[in-house]
């Protein structure tokens, strides 16, 4: 150690400060290689989407002519308009619009209710502990592991008994019940790291159960709420099984509508319309990810690393 000259320590030229994202300093060659691989994978993942987009703005004749990969010679948005409002779905030429609305009417309340209930559950399970709370939480976690198919028949019976069969409220109920396990898990783990002294302080300040939740807990729950919303939104929006099983014509969600559009056995298969419809069905989740995605990662990491 003593052989290191003082000079070496003092007059070292300032090395480029590594940014926060690069924990390991890499050479230029390694960098190029990394970016090349990343680009390759990005292309690999984007290709199917690109083909969908390309073919959704082509006339059908160009697709059936065998030019799936080529750019359209004739740009048109007719397939989109058709998919949205005039395409034949089942027996009605309604387009996907009513199903899109059904899905929105189902997803928004279902996500909101399951997230709020999950937050309340997490709050009670961590800050208002009672005998057997960990067992209860363990049981709730089971909801995360039960396959959808198992509950189909009992759920159908329950919905029938409650008079909610084949309706949007019925679907909302199903999704809330099924999502509670996840949202409770998220919020419980998030609130477990939240200092209990704050709750006690608020209690001494005279705030009650809901006031503490509303004024103290919720304002700091942003990251985990985003996680919960994204998770629930994607799951519920993309659900096909419950939608196909429990909805009737007035309440069918987008996924079922899309299936009916693509699988209609009459007439010509309008691939360009199908592509447009599929993109329409994927847009909302895409939007949620773009808007809230960075909070998603941040929220998932919260608690594991301090700060």
């Amino acid at each position: 150690m003593s052989t290191i000259s003082q000079e070496a320590v003092v007059v070292r030229p300032a090395a480029p400060v590594p940014s926060q994202d690069t924990a390991v300093r890499t050479s230029r060659v390694a960098r190029t290689f990394i970016y090349l691989v990343l680009l390759l994978f990005a292309l690999f993942y984007l290709l199917p989407f690109a083909i969908m987009v390309i073919n959704s703005v082509k006339p059908l004749s160009e697709i059936t002519g065998g030019n799936m990969l080529a750019l359209p010679q004739d740009w048109t948005i007719a397939p989109w308009l058709s998919a949205w409002s005039t395409a034949q779905i089942g027996v009605e030429p309604t387009g996907l619009r009513p199903y899109f609305l059904n899905s929105i009417l189902m997803v928004v309340p279902a996500v909101a209710i399951s997230t709020i209930l999950g937050a309340l559950n997490g709050y009670v399970l961590t800050k208002w502990r009672f005998r057997g709370d960990t067992i209860l939480f363990g049981l709730m976690l089971f909801a995360c592991f039960i396959p959808f198919q198992i509950v189909l028949i009992p759920m159908a019976r329950m919905l029938g008994l409650m008079g909610l069969a084949g309706s949007t409220p019925g679907l909302i109920l199903v999704h809330v019940v099924y999502g509670l396990g996840f949202t409770t898990l998220y919020f419980r783990n998030y609130y477990a790291a939240f200092p209990t002294e704050l709750v006690r302080a608020a209690m001494m300040d005279g705030a009650g159960f809901f006031r503490i939740f509303w004024r103290i807990m919720l304002p700091v729950s942003g990251p985990i709420a985003v996680v919960s919303v994204i998770w629930q939104f994607t799951n519920i929006w993309n659900d096909f099984l419950f939608g196909a099983s429990f909805a009737d014509l007035d309440s069918m969600p987008m996924t079922v509508g899309l299936n009916n559009l693509v699988n209609s056995s009459t007439g010509v298969k309008e691939y360009n319309v199908h592509f447009a419809g599929a993109i329409l069905a994927a847009l909302p989740t895409l939007l949620v990810y773009i808007v809230a995605g960075r909070y998603f990662v941040r929220g998932l990491m919260a608690g594991s690393v301090k700060g």
């Binding site: 200092p195 002294e197 704050l198 006690r200 302080a201 608020a202 001494m204 300040d205 005279g206 705030a207 006031r211 004024r215 103290i216 304002p219 700091v220």
Partner: peptide
């Protein structure tokens, strides 16, 4: 009124709001 070991200040409120929260309640 209690002063906690960790101070237990409400992180989402300003100092002023922290101090008057009890009165508000």
């Amino acid at each position: 009124a209690m002063v906690f070991q960790s101070y237990a200040l409400y992180p989402n409120m300003t100092v002023g709001q922290n101090i008057t929260f009890g009165l508000e309640m």
